[in-house]
């Protein structure tokens, strides 16, 4: 009998699989396809202090083995999310991770505080890496000092464990990881999307109205694996890995590289059942590669020094 459970700060996961933020809304739509209690956790769409309308359309376009998106953090605001969305998710037997974003440290602080007060959320994913908004987001995610500051503020604003979502759009991901670890982060979540751009030949314009967007999907998986491996060597806090996961083998790859749990993003769009399908495939996949549990795979990649 294989054991899928994973124990992380604030999160007792029955399995390591969770839909990634922004790819699953607040779960309502996918709850019509399957029982969300099947999931290890759900990472909610980013919440900001007040409602955000997001970017003009088109907001998505397909790329080779992936897609670009520039939604722009459209969300109804933290108050509305806490009133209308969190109770819905809380009815399921799964952990709730609230992704929080903001333009200023004050906004981050207010959103963190609000989620802390609900007592229905199990952890915070601190989004300092959204590439698609003009203010905040990625600025906090590319400067180690700013990343540390916002991490500290959010830590102080709540009792919830904080997983800092790192941007891959940096020269030195290890430096970012170390900075937020030192600032008190309980875990990391990586990677967010890589900024990209695609042109439309007939109109000679970018296909995304925001010009650039975040690249996700299988195209970025090797980048995610590399970054998780690098960061794992230098920090001690656990990593929720993500980036192009489409099957149980991918999950094992992330675990071997050093992730402790794995989020599934873009693949939800191709197949709304992808998360439960991966969860169902995990025991046999673990056995095939000689493992009895998820936890024993974490960081077990044999990588020459």
């Amino acid at each position: 009998m294989t054991n899928l459970a994973v124990h992380l700060p604030g999160l007792e996961l029955k399995n390591p699989i969770m839909p990634a933020s922004g790819c699953f809304g607040f779960g309502r739509e996918y709850s019509t396809f399957y029982d969300l209690s099947k999931l290890g956790a759900v990472i909610m769409k980013a919440a900001t202090g007040t409602e955000r309308l997001g970017n003009p359309t088109p907001r998505v376009v397909e790329t080779a083995s992936g897609m670009l998106n520039a939604i722009g953090l459209q969300n109804p605001g933290v108050k509305n999310i806490i009133e209308n969305e969190v109770p819905f998710l809380a009815a399921y037997d799964t952990s709730i991770i609230a992704n929080i974003a903001g333009s200023t440290t004050t906004e981050y602080e207010a959103v963190a505080r609000a989620f802390n007060e609900t007592e229905l959320v199990h952890a915070i994913e601190l989004n300092i890496s959204c590439p698609n908004v003009k203010e905040g987001g990625i600025q906090f995610g590319t400067d180690p000092a700013m990343a540390a500051t916002v991490t500290e503020i959010v830590k102080n604003a709540s009792n919830l464990p904080v997983y800092v979502k790192l941007s891959p759009n940096v020269t030195n991901i290890v430096e970012m990881a170390k900075a937020v670890e030192a600032a008190g982060a309980d875990g990391l979540s990586m990677i967010n999307t890589l900024t990209g751009m695609q042109m439309h030949l007939q109109s000679r314009k970018p296909l995304i109205a925001n010009k650039t967007g975040g690249l996700s999907g299988p195209a970025i998986k090797p980048v995610a694996i590399r970054m998780i491996y690098e960061v794992r060597q230098h920090v001690n806090i656990p990593i929720i890995g993500m980036g192009g996961v489409t099957n149980a083998e991918d999950v094992l790859e992330f675990l071997l590289a050093g992730a402790s749990a794995v989020a599934v993003g873009t693949a939800n769009f191709s197949n709304p059942y992808i998360c439960p399908e991966i969860i169902d495939a995990l025991p046999a996949t673990l056995e095939r590669y000689g493992f009895d549990s998820v936890e024993e795979v974490i960081g077990k990649g044999i990588i020459p020094v």
Binding site: C23, G25, E29, Y30, T57, R59, V60, M67, P272
Partner: peptide, 29 residues
């Protein structure tokens, strides 16, 4: 019509502003 992501109303890709300009409707759902 619009370029869509999930097609079920979760990803907020295919939106159109409402006439009052205060919110969006999701084209897919």
């Amino acid at each position: 019509e619009e370029r869509m992501g999930c097609g079920v109303g979760a990803c907020m890709a295919c939106v159109i502003p409402t006439n009052d300009g205060k919110s969006y409707q999701k084209i897919c759902s």
